[in-house]
Design a protein around this nucleic acid. Sequence first.
DNA 1: CAGCAATGTAATCATAGTGGTTACATATAC
DNA 2: GTATATGTAACCACTATGATTACATTGCTG
Lengths: 143, 143
Amino acid sequence: MARNCRFAVAVHVCAVLTLRRDDPPATSDWIAKSVNTNPVVVRRLLSALGKAGLVKSQRGTSGGSALAKEAAAITLLDISRAVDEDEGPPLPQQEPNPACPVGANIRPILTDILDRAEAARDRELQRTTLADIAASIRARLAP
Amino acid sequence: MARNCRFAVAVHVCAVLTLRRDDPPATSDWIAKSVNTNPVVVRRLLSALGKAGLVKSQRGTSGGSALAKEAAAITLLDISRAVDEDEGPPLPQQEPNPACPVGANIRPILTDILDRAEAARDRELQRTTLADIAASIRARLAP
DNA sequence: CAGCAATGTAATCATAGTGGTTACATATAC
DNA sequence: GTATATGTAACCACTATGATTACATTGCTG
């Protein structure tokens, strides 16, 4: 998993947008207050989410952002892919020694394993949608 | 997944030790040449693997390292846990705004999701042992 | 149309993590 | 006792991250 917090913050941002359905679009300023960070950080994420087609933003007065699709149609994997650009598997950039039987053969084996591990993680993220997140939050609000 | 290469290098190191079963213990110098890195980097990993009980090392002349268990009894998850110390889920250290319904409730939800994703990855890593890695390498050596 | 309010994005900065390297103390075989 | 190996601390260069400032751009609204 990526060691940054972009995914976590992006889910938070999207959760805000989901709970604000039917309300005027949320400004990056407003969202930033909920996340407790700088509005530009939020706008960067919204920009990435927008390029992925998950969110649409409007400039100008009474502008802001809203989901571009149904909450049930956006999975956490979509969000992860949108904000965490695809770096390959975490292998050393220095190639191993091809003169050693291990060095000559370990690379594709490691790539395969790391890809499989990431696929497992992805499958898990794909199982949850923004609608599920919203439901979890609502459940905690009115117990 | 961690964004460092420790896991990948550690698997390489362990693969070397596995293929050298019944040979004199491997020195960090020798292993480093296979990985194509500095011996100290290898020793750091061997130290962590040793503390996890996966490897044993011997100082002094004709010293070196060897597996502490059967290769079939060491999973890639064991190696990952040994060299990538457990940082929690990647959440922002700045707590979200408790006055917002989302900010007040998103934290445990995110933790749950990230834990689940990591568990899926772990389950995948657990399915492969060092014996499997060694077999894959041997298969590529004599096709 | 004027002006305000919002996004989009570049540039900069402090901080932290990573891996490579040197150095040296310690242990062990011969 | 000496050569050889591990175990670690210390330091360095490089990179990623997230916060921040600044400013251009867009669009509503009076």
